[in-house]
């Protein structure tokens, strides 16, 4: 096996159960905003994803925001969607990110622009996520660009992909995961999990196909602080599965924030026991300050060190 590309890859290869979280860049050019958020995560996580204009809303670029967060001492995972940049822009950004010391990338298709505030914008989708994964793989491991041009100094990237265990039809979604791994994905971060029975069934299928032996799978955890947030996810977020029983539980509880933390910890405890799960990916959208508390209470603090 080739040399690890990043600290995150080293930790996974050393057999550690990893903890990743997420940071949403600001709508604006506020560097302090990122640095402040980043400092609160230092020591609690093994990697931090920086979203790429999530839900198709203009924000500071994923790479630039990741660069500033990295300066505070975090291991970063940039996200790259194929919605906004063609093959020229995407590959150029991979080179730039690697040169900044950002050596993890999550390759995504991206939400359609109709979700955001610029539904009238032209979409790109020159590549799809599988093609992007293959392109980055060839850049990193073969030293060539999509056009065949060889590079003297190739980028270093640990390559990730997303998977939605709750997407339809099940079999086709599973085939897409296989395709992503075949194309070069080394880690998988899943859609947020609330329906554990369905997730366990998905993992069963993952193991049957040997996917868990070819890529590190991190379970997506989205702590919700209110019943309103859960309902919104159920109805407005593409590809989410939120069971009614959970909505009821949040409705009945006295302290929704505390209940939200408890739910997240319960999910973490359950997914940790599943064979093939190698870490978690916390996505506390709009509630990033809760990350350290959840990690501590889930018994995942302190984080391991690797050489």
């Amino acid at each position: 096996m080739s040399e690890p590309m990043s600290l995150l890859q080293k930790k996974l290869e050393a057999g550690h159960f990893v903890v990743c979280s997420e940071l949403g860049p600001p709508i604006g050019a506020n560097v302090d905003f990122i640095k402040k958020k980043a400092r609160k995560l230092v020591g609690y996580v093994d990697g931090v994803n920086v979203t790429d204009n999530q839900t198709a809303i203009v924000r500071m670029s994923s790479i630039v925001a990741a660069h500033f967060a990295r300066e505070e001492g975090l291991e970063m995972i940039i996200q790259a969607t194929t919605r906004d940049r063609n093959r020229i822009g995407l590959q150029s950004d991979i080179l730039g990110a690697s040169s900044l010391g950002l050596n993890n990338v999550l390759c995504l298709t991206g939400d359609h622009q109709s979700f955001g505030m610029d539904p009238g914008s032209k979409n790109v989708f020159d590549l799809d996520s599988v093609q992007l994964i293959r392109a980055v793989h060839n850049m990193v491991h073969k030293g060539v660009l999509l056009n065949g041009k060889e590079m003297k100094v190739p980028p270093k990237m640990f390559i990730g992909a997303a998977a939605n265990p709750f997407g339809d039809p099940f079999e086709m979604q599973m085939m897409k995961v296989e395709k992503k791994i075949e194309a070069g994905a080394q880690f998988i971060q899943t859609q947020a999990i609330y329906n554990l029975d369905k997730f366990e069934y998905w993992m069963e299928e993952v193991r049957k196909r040997g996917i868990h032996e070819k890529a590190y799978i991190m379970a997506g955890i989205l702590p919700a602080k209110s019943v309103k947030a859960l309902r919104m996810m159920k109805t407005d977020v593409a590809g989410m599965d939120v069971p009614d029983s959970l909505i009821e539980r949040m409705e009945k509880c006295e302290d929704p924030e505390e209940e939200g933390v408890k739910v997240a910890i319960e999910i973490i405890e359950r997914v940790r026991k599943i064979e093939g799960i190698r870490g978690i990916h916390l996505m506390p959208v709009g509630w990033e300050k809760i990350t350290p508390e959840i990690i501590e209470r889930a018994g995942l603090y302190p984080r391991p060190e690797v050489e």
């Binding site: 939400d111 109709s114 996520s129 997407g167």
Partner: peptide
């Protein structure tokens, strides 16, 4: 496909309907 994807679906469709509409 609203995103003209060539290697399979995105994760956004539900009940056979596109995330766009």
């Amino acid at each position: 496909c609203s995103k003209s994807l060539l290697n399979g679906p995105c994760g956004g469709a539900q009940d056979g309907k596109c995330e766009v509409d």
